[in-house]
Design a protein around this nucleic acid. Structure first.
Lengths: 188, 188
DNA sequence: GTCCGCATGTAAGGCGTTACATGATTAA
DNA sequence: TTAATCATGTAACGCCTTACATGCGGAC
């Protein structure tokens, strides 16, 4: 049923372990000390998630120096890269914007600006679609069913979407600027 | 454990049933045809939630015209009003912004602009606090641990918070304008 | 010698998700 | 009469949450 295997939390762990092998505790610390905290809270979710990733063959604990550091298996890396490569659908951003941004955050591991740009393309489409839906709802309901407060609440959502669009455009510029002469030469 | 009884979905149902008594199906329809859809999805969550609200004595099904319409009991109304009156804490907005906006949307049932203003006060504080935390994180981590993509992802969050602040200020103006001469006379 | 941070878990509970099922009424 | 909409559910499953529990090592 639904079989979306690694959970958002699972992908967060996968991405972090790929950045640098860590212990379970080390992973927890990241959640506690960064905005990534939204994806977890304390051992009750992390340790079981790690075990499931391990059972699925996506990570392995390697004993290094008396510490068991988790690192990605090839399969784990494939899974992570596959996740990163998915285009952003409107429902993705609607249901769980945080997960979408998590994907963006990990996208730098690919070191392929073109992938990031493609991500931002689909991101903008998705957000624009959701924004249009909100506006359509406001137009259709306004002057009737919707209270003043209700309309304002929907407008909060619309404002958030507009901010996301502006962010995406800025991100695109930043990425482009960062991929200037030096890197572009190194790539081709 | 944690005993936060009515779930966000529960409060959504409470608020909708208070606006106007509806059948379970009628409530479902609201979720399917409005941005409130974020709080539910299909019967598997709504019917059990309704039963729990009924068992807790917050709503009652009244047989009207061969249809069972749910309406709030006095206790249900007290619970709802109590929820609406809570100040917004930083963690509230951080953990579940949607729930906070849902509260705002229902706030009009009180018909007390002062309450709405108080809500917006605490809302702004909460958002500002979260925004400051994100900025502090960016400042502390920048130039080191944080990748370009990571920093951009955090900035997306910051942009959303700033949009929320701007929205709150605008909402305040709209509410104030709506409470102009005519209503103000009626109130005092 | 005590406290704090490292490090790793388990147990109970609840809630939402998906998917399956069923019937009545009304419109084509 | 066949399809859609109204109307109400159940069952399996999984995941997160909270809270509890434990042990080691270093610092003061």
């Amino acid at each position: 049923m639904a079989e979306e295997f690694p959970t958002t939390l699972g992908f967060a762990l996968l991405g972090l372990a790929h950045q640098e092998p860590r212990t379970g505790y080390g992973l927890r610390k990241v959640f506690e000390t960064s905005p990534m905290g939204r994806f977890s809270s304390s051992p009750g979710s992390i340790y079981p998630a790690l075990r499931k990733l391990e059972e699925a063959g996506l990570i392995e604990a390697r004993e290094t120096d008396a510490k068991a550091l988790y690192h990605l298996t090839p399969k784990g890396k494939r899974t992570l890269v596959g996740w990163l490569g998915r285009p952003v659908r409107a429902q993705d951003y609607d249901r769980d914007p945080d997960a979408v941004l998590l994907r963006f955050a990990f996208l730098d591991m690919l070191n392929e600006p073109a992938r990031t740009i493609a991500f931002l393309d689909s991101f903008e489409c998705a957000v624009a679609e959701n924004l249009a839906a909100l506006k359509a709802f406001l137009d259709s309901a306004d002057g009737g069913t919707l209270s003043l407060h209700g309309a304002l609440a929907v407008e909060h959502g619309a404002a958030a979407h507009e901010a996301a669009l502006a962010w995406a455009r800025r991100a695109r510029r930043v990425i482009a600027a960062h991929t200037s002469p030096a890197r572009r030469r190194a790539q081709s």
